[in-house]
Structures are given as C-alpha cells and as structure tokens.
Design a protein around this nucleic acid. Structure first.
Lengths: 229, 229
DNA sequence: GTCTATAAAAGGATAGAC
DNA sequence: GTCTATCCTTTTATAGAC
C-alpha cells in the first residue's frame, strides 16, 4: 500500500527507450562522446524545433552548431538520420519529468490528480508540443519515429496507469474491470480542448488555472465512472 | 422535445464556414466556375494529401491536373494560397457528414451515442485524418488555417453539443452545470487511443468494432459523471 | 575529423508568345 | 487564359586539401 502509490507513469522499466534508440539509429552501445557531435545535436534540436523538418536546412544547422556542413554529414549520414537521432533523444527528455515525479501517498483521487498534473504539464510544455506536432506532421515520412514515440509516450503511460488501476481494483478501492481501457480513457480526458488548442498552436502556453481545471474534471469524471456499485 | 434531439453537432448555422472562406482566401462571392480551376483544385488536393505541404511540388500539381504550371499560378498566386484554398475547401467537406446526420430521437444516451458515432467516423476517415495531420504540422506556417479549422471543427461541435446538454439539464434529464466544459470533455473522451494511433499514422484504418467500443465507453462514462444526484 | 569549395538537382516563380 | 521555356534561389550531398 506504499510502493504502488508512487509515480504511476513510470511503473515499467526504461528498457523500451534503450531499444527504441537502437531501432531508430542503429547505434551501438559503446558510443564515444564528442563535443562537436553534442554541439550538432543541440543545434539541430533548436533548428528542427524552430522551423520544422522541411524548413530546417543542413546549412542552418551547421551554422548554428559552428561547424562545417561536412562535419554534420560525417557524424550523421543524412538529414533524415539526423532528425531521427534528435527526435529519439528528445523523446527520452520528454519522459524524464514523469520519471522524477515525487512519490504520492493517498487514495486513488490523489494519485490520479498527481499523475494527471505531471502528464499535462509535460505534454503541454512548449518543446514537447512542438515535438509532438512534428511527429504527427512527419509520421508518414518517419513511421518508425511515430511508432517509437507512441510506445515510450502514450502507450507507456497508459500501461503504467493500468497497472496501478488493476491494483486498486484488487484492493477494492474502485471498480476497474478493464484497467487498460480505463487508463486510456483517463488520459484521453486530459487531452481536451486545451491540449488541442496547443497542438494547433492557437495558444502559446497553457495557463496553470486551465490545467488545474482540466485535471479536476478528468479525475472527478473518472472516479464517478469507476465507483463501487 | 423533438427538434432539439436532432443532429447535435450542427446546431449552429454554417455562417462560420462561409466567413472562414472569406478570411482564408479573400474570395468574393461572385466566383466564376472554371473547369481548369476545378481540375487544379482536385489535383492539388490529391497531391497535398498524399505528400504533405513541403513535399508537394507545384510541378507535380500542374502535371496531375494536366495543365501548365503557369495556369496554376494564374488562378492561385502562390503555393501557400493554393494550399489555403484546398484546405478550407476540405474543411467544409469534413463537416458535411455531420450536417447530414439523421435526426435522432430518444434519451440523452441515444443522442450522445449517435453524436459520438458521427464524430468518430468523420474524424477517423482517412482523408480527414491526413488533413488534420497536415494542419497540425503546418500550424506554425499557417496560423489562420489552424484557427479556422478549430472554429468550424472542434469548437463548432463542442458548442453544438453544449446547447443540447444545456437543454437536457433544463429538462432535468442530466445534471450539467457547465455544458461547454462537459461537451469538451465528451469529445475529449472520444479522442482516445484509437484516435491517437490514427493521428500518428500507426493504423491505416479504424475498425468498426473499436469505434463502437470507444463510443460506448465514452457515453457510459459521461452519463455516470452527469447523473442526477 | 574538419574545413573550403563545388556539384547536382529540385522547386518556386516569371517572361513572353499565342 | 493558357502554354513553353527559363531564371534563380535554395538545398542536399560530395570532392579534395589539411
């Protein structure tokens, strides 16, 4: 009754992220860190996030990194490979806040609220919204990226919450006959109008008040729908 | 008790769509229909939807339409203007199935179910998913398009449902103190995992069974959360 | 590995004839 | 309005010196 109450989102280990990296980049584990390479990654991240895949040019990335364009091609073979490396790297950063979520003690209401807050604040953060926007827009060109993102992001979060909900059901706190579906529904409720407006770039940032409101409504609706008979 | 039960999604008139067109294209109402122009629109729609904005070339569009590139530029001044015309045109098509929804009689459960079905089948249709994907990906480059889409799409649908929910609340069928927020929550529940997988292009088409399942869960959860005390 | 310089191609947009 | 032909910029990617 203590360990299960902490950090719902990260309940599974992070082996998925590692495997994702391998799938996307084909990198070996023994990777020599290079200052130039790091500069390129940082610069490419900025340029890609600022301009999108199509509008970002390798010239701009090289200039931003302060290196010659050929150096970029030496480390990453092509623009597509560079983009994939950047995105998979960013996906890991995206999960980090959720992993650092403080342990939450209390009933399902408190745990759900904390989980919802961490989720919304993460996905609504400017960089993450931009990243998600790019992944959707380029999902046809980069199907492997989209699949990997889904796995380490939404799928991972839903599975983690499902585990917790199953435990709560077993203890008799709520009635959750299909934990996975219920977890998906909970996250869906969080991706409401605010989320959509952010996705369409109609709102530069989400207000804390609106986040709280969304969280409260989702938690209330979820508890009402899963109360014991 | 009869008129309010029909087609929740389209309750407001379609003046918004007309105004959208004016905003986006700046077209006058007296527009002379031209066969070449229609061919260009049809071709551009295909090419844009198939390749995305960045990868679609004016050469390809001209070739697909069977006209010279200059003819394309004669009708639409630039690639951006052409894209805006195509998208605003497609947005109207997107709303049409909802407008044609059959009148539904019955209690809130039946109306919500019918509304949810029409909504999901519309937004999950291949072309509409592709369009939405493009709007999100290009929302930074085309803010006016994203805003117009939000207005005639999600916002319009939520407002229509909110009107209906307010009426139900007044009649005492459900307890809906904040109809707009409840309507947004309902549509959010529909945009669940299936929706996200379609958006990320992980699934080429949605199965009817999964649609029904999503609809049923959303309706059940909504009714549970808005039951009378 | 890193740089300068360049190739090679594609794409948006225009000129001028009919 | 429509077509053919062309301009010019941008962009990915590579060659060759150090």
């Amino acid at each position: 009754m203590d360990k299960e109450h902490r950090g719902v989102v990260q309940s599974t280990s992070n082996t998925a992220a590692v495997e994702t990296d391998a799938v996307l980049e084909g990198t070996d584990e023994g990777e020599v860190p290079s200052p130039k390479r790091d500069a390129i990654i940082a610069a490419a991240t900025r340029v890609f996030l600022a301009n999108g895949y199509g509008a970002a040019s390798m010239d701009a990335i090289a200039a931003e990194a302060g290196v010659a364009k050929q150096t970029v091609y030496s480390h990453f073979g092509s623009k597509e490979a560079l983009f994939e490396a950047i995105v998979s790297c960013k996906c890991e950063d995206l999960m980090r806040p959720a992993l650092d979520a403080d342990a939450v003690t209390g009933g399902p209401g408190e745990v759900l609220t904390a989980t919802a807050r961490a989720f919304l604040e993460t996905v609504l953060a400017p960089d993450n919204t931009t990243l998600y926007r790019m992944l959707i827009g380029e999902s046809t060109r980069f199907p492997a990226l989209a699949e990997a993102f889904y796995r380490v992001g939404p799928r991972h979060a839903a599975d983690g919450l499902a585990d917790y909900l199953a435990e709560v059901d077993r203890r008799g706190g709520l009635r959750v006959p299909e934990p996975t579906r219920s977890a998906e529904l909970f996250f869906a409720m969080l991706r409401g109008d605010l989320y959509m407006r952010r996705l369409l770039d109609l709102e530069s940032r989400a207000s804390a008040a609106e986040i709280e409101d969304t969280v409260d409504r989702a938690v209330a609706a979820f508890l009402a729908g899963h109360a014991l008979d």
